[in-house]
């Protein structure tokens, strides 16, 4: 087991490094004009511009720049933003923005999982009856209608009816409600439809038939066999989703004016803030890779058929 974990960690690190290098090199292909704020670029002479670029270290060979970047990361220095928040250390930007996205993300994930699982269980339990149809209608609606439409409508109608402020105010908890609810809508649908599907799959298995013939009640079978087994394939995705809550949501954070991470990457790319892009890509890559890794470990934990260590497999083969 521990051998497997070490191997996976090394593989994950390699993946992250490759992603970062690829993005790093791609960014060097961009025109250098992007390193200036608009006004600076216009006001500077050609010489001033090249001096500025040299000062930034952009003119050095890519290998050296890369080395500098990684060295900085290891020291805990993520560099400074260039154009989005000129001169501001990126760690300061993150420290300010991440908490908003994280808290909203965690709250909505909690709601998504609890309500989504509830929905899935209800739909499976009453398959082909009205709760199932109603749930399916909800899932289809959330997935098929472009989210901007219903998210706007929710914002306008609900704030109108409840006389709440349209946008997010940190000191007014009532304005936290709608962003969290909006963030959860798709999550609820996702967990609901997949849990339903896995539960229905399990219900039709032979061992459920045998469990029924043993005299176990429908309720007991649902709880201890069907649900227990249906959750397993979903477990793998939880860590990724949990970690990526940090990334925030572009749409919801912008319509409620939440100063979170959502859209920061898009904005940084648009403004050609190479340093910021670089750091954000690094962070998302690390979170994504770590999430998948933890998900795999969790799977092995909840599903006894999955064995992570190759060594153990050999032992098993010998025993047979």
């Amino acid at each position: 087991m521990s051998r497997y974990i070490v191997k996976r960690i090394l593989q994950s690190l390699l993946t992250v490094v490759i992603v970062v290098i690829a993005v790093f090199l791609l960014l060097r292909l961009m025109p250098t004009s992007g390193y200036f704020t608009r006004d600076d670029y216009i006001n500077m002479t050609e010489e001033m511009r090249s001096a500025y670029l040299r000062n930034l270290g952009i003119t050095d060979p890519a290998v050296i720049q890369l080395q500098r970047f990684f060295a900085g990361v290891f020291r805990g220095d993520l560099g400074r933003s260039i154009t989005v928040y000129p001169k501001l250390p990126i760690s300061t930007i993150l420290a300010e923005k991440v908490p908003y996205s994280l808290w909203f993300g965690l709250a909505s994930m909690f709601i998504s999982v609890t309500l989504g699982f509830g929905l899935g269980i209800l739909m499976a339990r009453f398959k082909d009856r009205w709760p199932d149809h109603l749930g399916t209608a909800y899932v289809v609606a959330v997935r098929a209608i472009p989210s901007l439409i219903y998210l706007f409508l929710i914002q306008i109608w609900v704030t109108g009816i409840m006389r709440w402020p349209m946008v997010f105010y940190e000191d007014r908890p009532v304005t936290w409600i709608l962003p969290v609810v909006s963030l959860s809508l798709t999550g609820i649908a996702w967990y609901g439809i997949w849990l339903r599907r896995f539960m229905v799959d399990e219900e039709n298995r032979d061992y459920i038939k045998f469990a029924r013939s043993k005299g176990l009640s429908q309720k007991y079978i649902m709880r201890h066999h069907v649900l227990r087994n249906a959750v397993v394939p979903l477990v793998q995705y939880l860590p990724v989703q949990l970690l990526l809550t940090i990334a925030g949501s572009l749409i919801i954070e912008s319509i409620y004016s939440i100063p979170g991470m959502g859209g920061l990457l898009v904005y940084a790319i648009k403004q050609q803030d190479n340093n910021l892009v670089q750091v954000l890509v690094l962070i998302y890559a690390v979170l994504g890779v770590a999430g998948v890794f933890v998900g795999d470990l969790l799977m092995a934990f909840v599903d006894p058929r999955i064995r992570l260590a190759e060594k153990k497999k050999k032992k098993e083969a010998l025993r047979v």
């Binding site: 032979d206 061992y207 045998f210 043993k214 066999h225 397993v232 006894p304």
Partner: peptide, 29 residues
């Protein structure tokens, strides 16, 4: 079911819950 009339099926490979120990599955009945 189970206590008066019990039944076993054709395919033993699929008749047991793959995620529960043998012990649990006997003990529960």
């Amino acid at each position: 079911r189970g206590r008066k009339i019990a039944m076993i099926f054709q395919d033993p490979m699929t008749a047991l819950n793959p995620l529960k120990t043998i012990g649990e599955q006997i003990r529960e009945v």
